[in-house]
Amino acid sequence: MDKRTTHFGFQDVPVEEKASRVADVFHSVAARYDVMNDLMSFGIHRVWKRLTIERAGVRPGHKVLDIAGGTGDLALKFSRIVGPTGKVILADINASMLNVGRDKLIDNGAGGNVDYVQANAECLPFPDNTFDCITIAFGLRNVTDKDKALASMARILKPGGRLLVLEFSKPPNPLLSKAYDEYSFRLLPRMGEMVAGDADSYRYLAESIRMHPDQQTLKGMMETAGLERVEFTNLTGGIVALHRGIKL
């Protein structure tokens, strides 16, 4: 691949165009994002996120960053855990998603311990050694330079802090993988058209999942970024994987 291009789904596009193209996708789907998540995963995404919160080890008084936090599922739970002495920052590169997340958290009673920041994961605008925990759920695959983003996350973690990456991955079972492909490329765009009026965005999401690094590759990328004791857990047969690393 030419150094000046990157993948947008199955297309090669100029590096400088990818962020705006991804932004267009999420501007389009923001209003129906939660509904589509429930439909696409048959509600199982809530179980995946609950496990992420359990593995995060967040406690009262902690400072937590949720990157690509979208509509705020993780941030809402974290705000209740860290309490009034803690702080949660919901960050997203996309203003539409951030606005939906802000409205959702306010409607659900999230208090003054949540801040909202529009930020690019590749150059996070926070000082070194700031956060006890960083999460990114279903967002890393949309980042142009994943290595740069992981290094940026590692930089702003406190020593002893944890990074958790929840992302679609590669099912090791070939039968499950084939069935998952059939679902992703045939049914998902149709659901996107019916529910969100946007088949193309959900076709891109299916393609972006296939272009994302597999479990072992992402583990190595996290280690290269400076994280230690990196491990992953396959969820729902490896359709999704939860990676966890610690900054020592």
Rank of each mutant, 00 (worst) to 15 (best):
N37I: 08
G220F: 11
V195F: 13
A75M: 07
T5W: 04
P60F: 11
V117R: 05
I156H: 01
Q118M: 14
A137E: 03
K77G: 01
P189I: 10
M40I: 15
K219V: 12
P127G: 11
R32M: 06
P213C: 07
C133H: 02
A199I: 01
K63Y: 11
G101Q: 05
Y183I: 13
M194Y: 10
L175S: 13
L242M: 08
P60N: 10
A151F: 01
R210I: 04
I89V: 15
Y116I: 02
G160E: 06
R50K: 15
V58A: 13
Y116T: 09
V29Y: 03
N108V: 03
V47F: 14
A30G: 02
N234V: 01
I209S: 14
I89N: 02
L140R: 00
D200M: 06
D38H: 13
P172E: 10
F78G: 03
R155Q: 11
E228S: 15
A225P: 06
G161I: 02
N120W: 04
A23T: 14
I93T: 10
H7C: 11
V25T: 12
K49H: 08
M191C: 07
D103W: 04
G70P: 08
Y202Q: 06
L166G: 05
M40T: 13
A56S: 15
K63D: 01
C133K: 01
F232G: 06
K148G: 01
G111W: 08
V29S: 03
L188H: 07
N99M: 13
R141T: 02
